[in-house]
């Protein structure tokens, strides 16, 4: 028995060593395939040092432009999130196995959401630009559709986990489907939905900052301009503004969460 355990451990150790070795070998192989050789690394470190030293102090020549672009990015993210949340609320109810009208509809919506989610937001933006033209609109639509992909999944999972007893209880009181969903189901999943929606806002703000890269409006374009002119000090300034955007979104959503919780605590004691 003890011997068995010992050999098992030995085996596991050998296995682990093989794993580690394979992982390392694949790393070296990948480096070679990408033509990342010491000489190039040294050269890029050199270039990185150059970029870094040219980044300071961060400046901007057109503060108003930069500010306006940042605002536009935030607006794109807000609209993309709101549209995504509203449409997902509706679709998620139809996609949840326990609430849907037909299982086929549920499969169809889930498959649609899965596909939409797997294609990155930036590619959606690229496609929407071709379809509807440049500007913030393709950005908003791209974020909305990418949000739907994720939110339908997570909302649907939350809905499928609810206690079906609530649904039965309200139905046996003679409530209609809509009443069951709004009075029984949504209060039970509200916290989860809020958390996921705010998380998605956070993700969308990060995306919105880079949508400009493909021409979908916002601060990303400012970054492209600065980088193409090798103005690293300006690029750093844009980066700092992006950092600020992401941070402020976190602070605001935290504030809103606290306010709601305080009100709820006051009303239910």
């Amino acid at each position: 028995m003890i011997k068995n355990k010992e050999t098992f451990r030995q085996q596991k150790k050998v296995q682990n060593s093989i794993f580690t070795f394979l992982a390392f070998a694949f790393f070296v192989f990948s480096m070679l395939q990408l033509n990342i050789v010491p000489e190039r690394i040294v050269r890029s470190i050199d270039r990185l040092g150059y970029i870094f030293s040219n980044m300071f102090p961060p400046v901007t020549n057109e503060p108003l432009n930069l500010f306006g672009a940042a605002i536009e990015s935030i607006q794109v993210a807000i609209l993309g999130t709101i549209l995504g949340v509203l449409i997902s609320l509706f679709l998620a109810v139809l996609a949840a196995k326990n609430l849907t009208f037909s299982p086929y509809l549920s499969y169809f919506i889930k498959a649609f959401a899965g596909f939409v989610r797997a294609v990155p937001a930036l590619i959606w933006a690229l496609l929407f630009i071709v379809a509807v033209g440049l500007g913030p609109t393709p950005g908003i639509l791209a974020l909305a559709i990418n949000s739907i992909g994720m939110l339908v999944k997570v909302y649907g999972e939350a809905l499928e986990e609810i206690d079906m007893g609530i649904v039965e209880a309200l139905e046996s009181a003679g409530a209609t489907k809509l009443q069951v969903i709004l009075q029984g189901v949504f209060p039970s999943v509200l916290t989860a939905f809020t958390a996921w929606s705010l998380f998605r806002l956070d993700v969308n703000i990060r995306y919105s900052a880079i949508l400009g890269v493909v021409g979908a409006g916002g601060i990303g374009w400012e970054l492209m301009k600065a980088a193409q002119m090798s103005r690293y000090d300006e690029a750093l300034m844009v980066t700092i503004v992006i950092f600020g955007m992401v941070m402020s979104a976190e602070v605001i959503s935290e504030f809103m969460k606290k306010r709601t919780n305080a009100a709820t605590a006051q009303a239910l004691n």
């Binding site: 990408l34 033509n35 990342i36 190039r40 890029s44 270039r47 990185l48 150059y50 970029i51 930036l122 990060r206 995306y207 900052a209 880079i210 890269v213 990303g220 970054l223 492209m224 980088a227 193409q228 090798s230 690293y232 690029a235 980066t239 992006i242 950092f243 992401v246 941070m247």
Partner: peptide, 21 residues
């Protein structure tokens, strides 16, 4: 964490050049 990878890529492309590195 707060700066998306694409942003780093844009800055680095102009510094190091195009390509997988």
């Amino acid at each position: 964490r707060s700066v998306p990878a694409v942003v780093w890529a844009i800055i680095l492309v102009s510094g190091i050049g195009l390509g997988p590195l």
